[in-house]
């Protein structure tokens, strides 16, 4: 039985159909990336999985006892709310100090526990959100454009961290991303969404599919092909710590700053 099965899911927001006929199955330990243009329903799909949006029609069945860790796209904490990182990680359930320390280390931000959340940088806060999701020992980790606002270096580091977490916890990861050039390297499977699922499969298959190219334009294919070509060189090392500079066309795919 898969970790999560979504069958023929339809979602409407304010009378407008946002998702239709979504069939998606997630297995333990796989990293799946959702790509798609703005307004294609990527975030809505994640919000439906956590139960914030009720489906109009269709089934969403989780493995019994499924624990979900959720890292939202953006979280604005009001400046009037005093909150240390430790207190934030203990919401809504308290965890032993040992577990808090471990989660902060897993998310690569050890020793931040006593800081005020509002004093953190964007990258640090994103990692704190990841640490909070990890505290619940999730079977499924949902990331909604978790690297928004991070630079190339920070983004590459963040995805490396996700791969590491997957190895340690054995959890499945479902993430929304605009950074296709990084995503291609990090995911087992890519799902291309535009209200319905246009195509899905290994990164190579999705890249080559006409549906994907129709959605993102032929430029994209070229840019990614160029990028991949770059990586197929025998002297390149995919695990090197500095990310390869993006090819000329890839910047077009990223979210505007």
């Amino acid at each position: 039985m898969p970790l999560l099965s979504i069958d023929d899911l339809h979602v409407a927001l304010g009378g407008r159909t946002v998702l239709e006929g979504i069939d998606l199955h997630l297995d333990r330990g796989e990293i799946v990336t959702l790509v798609g243009p703005n307004g294609s329903g990527k975030s809505t799909l994640l919000r439906t999985i956590i139960g914030a949006v009720a489906p109009a029609h269709g089934r969403l069945v989780g493995h019994p006892g499924l624990t979900i860790g959720y890292v939202p796209q953006r979280l604005a904490i009001d400046a009037t709310l005093p909150m240390t990182v430790t207190r934030f990680l203990n919401l809504p359930r308290r965890h032993p100090p040992q577990a808090i320390r471990q989660a902060l280390e897993q998310a690569c931000v050890p020793g931040l526990g006593r800081q005020q959340v509002t004093d953190l940088s964007g990258g640090q806060f994103q990692r704190i959100l990841l640490a909070r999701a990890l505290l619940e020992k999730p079977d499924l980790l949902l990331l909604d454009e978790a690297t928004q606002g991070l630079d190339h270096r920070g983004t590459a580091d963040f995805y490396r961290q996700i791969a590491c977490v997957r190895r340690e916890l054995g959890c499945a990861v479902l993430m929304v991303s605009h950074e296709l050039h990084v995503v291609m390297r990090a995911s087992d499977r890519v799902v291309c969404l535009n209200r319905h699922i246009c195509c899905q499969g290994t990164p190579e298959r999705v890249l080559a599919s006409p549906a994907y190219q129709a959605l993102f334009g032929p430029d994209t294919g070229d840019a990614l092909a160029f990028y991949r070509h770059d990586h197929d060189r025998p002297d390149s090392d995919p695990s090197a710590s500095t990310p390869t500079p993006p090819a000329a066309g890839t910047t077009r795919l990223e979210t505007a700053p």
Binding site: G51, L75, L81, F88
Partner: peptide, 19 residues
């Protein structure tokens, strides 16, 4: 208290934590 605080932070975050 804890549930109220979580819901104050973010509605979706609260929902994902079962609040």
């Amino acid at each position: 208290w804890s549930a109220l605080l979580t819901a104050t932070l973010d509605a979706d975050l609260a929902r994902a934590s079962g609040v």
